[in-house]
Nucleic acid binder design. Structure first.
Lengths: 255, 255
DNA sequence: GAATAATATGACGAAACGTCAAAAAATGTC
DNA sequence: GACATTTTTTGACGTTTCGTCATATTATTC
């Protein structure tokens, strides 16, 4: 159940050559696994295949990841780190609190469209039968990452309250507001996944519905400036191109 | 890949003795599988164990369900049928369109709290790796059920528009509105599932957040009467006890 | 350069899936 | 009721994959 290598790696400050090699190999294993999932689906991912593809033995793979599920969870952690990066970019956006919060939602949609498999991995790990087999350490890591990403969203809501864009009466509802958007986006992403056929060029129709719905929702909280007093279509495009130009390009290219 | 027995059963109008026996056995298998998941988790469900517990051979089980995933999907279909029943009760509720629509949400929350494992099964089947192994027929059945349940929600929205509770300008957004609530509830349910520790007596805190959020959301659509002009806490209790008294009792009892 | 510690390997046992030839039961025919 | 034919059931079998562990290999220390 314990991963000797992981334990060593996690305690690193200034990595030695040896440790760099281990880290590098860990990356290689993860990249290989990810490619496998991307190309042939989750069902085709097996430890034996990963071992063969990386040209290491199975035992070595197990030195890095205590189980197949642990490996998938590691992929999730990497995805969440990518999401954190996106959330941070949204946080830095020069605009109203409302716009910055919306930017998070757009970034989230974008990421999930670009990396549908990542979303699928996260969904896989959320499943209790899978979760059970993930090592304690890795679960802790994931929870910590999820906590951090949540924090970013919460701070924007808090700032909105502080500057008056959101009424002070919502002070105790910061969690609820974030939870609302989170669940809506999370649910939409998962529902979208089952209906894969609808992937047209650019954003999927689900993204548009989601954008409308989140605006309605935030208007419901009277978060200023209201979307009904704004050109929300235009805002969507502005935010997309200001923050996520590279991703948009990729999206257009891949369709 | 084909299930001989299922094929026979599905074409039944007036079941003969033989067919009744097959149906009955199918129920037995499903009940056994469900109990297994409930008691020891999804990971403990195996076809061999089901065969042993039902005292039929594995081959016979496979005559009914073409794969383990097919069996789980059948459990999902049963859950969705239960949900349809709940949605229909909500549809019949004597109250404003807004209240009836809210009743759906409450029923959904309730069902998922009472049958957390059902929700987990649905989540499992949504996963592509699992979905791939479900027989075509079963997938069609599930999609049809999902379509029906969606229809119930959509008709309430439509009625709201027709009677003026919802502005006519939303005529083209019926799908979007239902999708919004659906994704929010679906996402909330899944997020709730990962945080199992928070199951206090009665409704989980997530249900409260969800209730608040859906009200805000529907207020955003200006769906009359607005929750901010109503005692929404009271409404929640009224709907719960009017429609879901039995379920509430079960919920209190199980905590 | 030898002794010791760390790491890598792949053969192995266990668990589970799904199949299929043969056995058993049910049904039909005379 | 006896025999033939069809349907259904059975469980042994082949296959895949998991995760382990004794052994082999490599690295490090003295």
């Amino acid at each position: 159940m314990v991963c000797p290598v992981t334990k060593i790696i996690s305690a690193i400050k200034q990595p030695t050559r040896k440790q760099r090699e281990l880290l590098q190999r860990e990356e290689l294993i993860m990249d290989t696994a990810q490619a496998m999932v991307y190309e042939h689906g989750y069902g085709h991912l097996s430890m034996d295949r990963v071992a063969e593809a990386t040209e290491y033995s199975k035992g070595t793979i197990y030195n890095h990841f205590s189980s197949k599920e642990d490996l998938v969870c590691s992929l999730c952690c990497r995805s969440i780190k990518n999401l954190i990066d996106i959330f941070e970019r949204a946080y830095q956006y020069e605009g109203s609190t409302r716009e910055r919060y919306s930017a998070i939602g757009i970034g989230y949609s974008l990421y999930n469209q670009l990396h549908a498999m990542d979303a699928q991995n996260i969904q896989t790990v959320k499943n209790n039968a899978v979760r059970e087999k993930v090592s304690e350490e890795k679960l802790v890591e994931m929870e910590s990452l999820e906590h951090n990403i949540n924090k970013i969203a919460q701070s924007i809501v808090q700032e909105a309250i502080d500057c008056g864009d959101l009424d002070k009466k919502h002070q105790d509802n910061v969690g609820t507001i974030v939870f609302g958007c989170w669940s809506m986006h999370y649910g939409a992403m998962l529902l979208d996944q089952s209906d894969m056929p609808l992937n047209k060029l650019g954003f999927s129709p689900v993204v548009n519905m989601l954008w409308e719905n989140s605006n309605i929702y935030l208007d419901g909280y009277q978060w200023q400036p209201l979307s009904k007093d704004t050109d929300s279509k235009k805002l969507f495009n502005e935010i997309s191109s200001a923050l996520f130009d590279d991703e948009i390009a990729l999206l257009k290219q891949s369709s």
